[in-house]
Structure formats: C-alpha cells, structure tokens
Simulated scan of single mutants.
Amino acid sequence: MNIEEFRDYCLAKPHVEETLPFGEDTLVFKVAGKMFAMCSLNSYAEGVNLKCDPERAVELREQYHVIQPGYHMNKKHWNTIYPEASLPMGLLPELIDHSYELVVKCLPKKVRVELGV
C-alpha cells in the first residue's frame, strides 16, 4: 500500500477528517476529533502510526519485525508499521480498520449516535 492508497483508505471511513496539526509533513486522520492514523508525507516508508489494542500490539510486534512500538506515541497503544516492507497482503488495511474501530468504540455514546457509527 503506497501513501495515496493509505490516504484514500483512511478517508473512505465514515466521518474521517485529514489534518496537519504537527506541521506540513505529518498527515493525521481523525474521527470525531480523535486521531487513529498518522504518517509523514515526505517519508511514508519510514512508518505509519496506528492505534492498536495493547495485547494485539504485543502479538503483532512479536510476529512481524516491521511492526514496532509507536514512534513518538504511547508505546502501549500505538504501533509504527513500515508499510512498504514485508507485510502480508491485506494486513495494513486490517490494522487501519482496527485502529479506526478502537477510536470509534471509545467515543461517547452520544457522539456515536450523532455520527451514526
């Protein structure tokens, strides 16, 4: 998955907004103001950050050397994934879905109802 595919996949999720809160190079994807994905526009191959269930995060890091604790993020809840490395086909979209669903699940019920998610 290249950066354009990553961006399109994230933006296809319901109610996602794309922002640049950390400067012109860092693209952040949010749902209801909560971040679920981020990447560098200039160095996408150096990793994307995705939220992850803590237990699954450890399992993924043990299984794939291209998945590491989140760079500049809470290492318990975020992974950095090197997207152009040797990931199995379909794993990155699955991890994006997982990240998005974790964030949506933690939104207040009122917000989820308002968004219809």
Rank of each mutant, 00 (worst) to 15 (best):
E18V: 08
A45H: 11
M38Q: 04
C10T: 12
K34D: 04
G23D: 00
M1N: 00
L115Y: 11
A12N: 15
Q68A: 07
D97K: 13
H98V: 10
K109Y: 08
S40F: 04
W78E: 04
D25M: 01
E62K: 15
P108V: 14
N42G: 12
P54T: 13
E84Y: 07
G116C: 07
D8R: 15
K75A: 06
H65V: 13
A32T: 05
L20I: 04
L60N: 04
V113F: 10
A12Q: 13
A37K: 02
C52V: 12
L11Y: 15
E62L: 15
C52Q: 14
R61S: 04
C39T: 01
M38R: 03
I96M: 12
R56K: 15
C39Q: 00
Y9R: 09
G23R: 08
K105P: 02
H15L: 09
R7T: 13
M1V: 03
G23H: 04
L102N: 13
V16P: 02
M1G: 00
S40G: 04
V104F: 11
N79C: 09
E59C: 10
Y82N: 00
V117W: 13
A12P: 10
L87M: 12
L27E: 01
D53T: 09
L95M: 14
D8W: 14
N49W: 06
L92S: 04
Y9V: 04
H65Q: 11
C10D: 06
A32K: 11
L91D: 00
Y100S: 07
L87W: 07
N79K: 03
P14L: 06
G33K: 11
K76P: 01
H98R: 08
H77R: 07
D97P: 07
H65C: 07
H65P: 08
V104P: 09
K34I: 07
F6L: 03
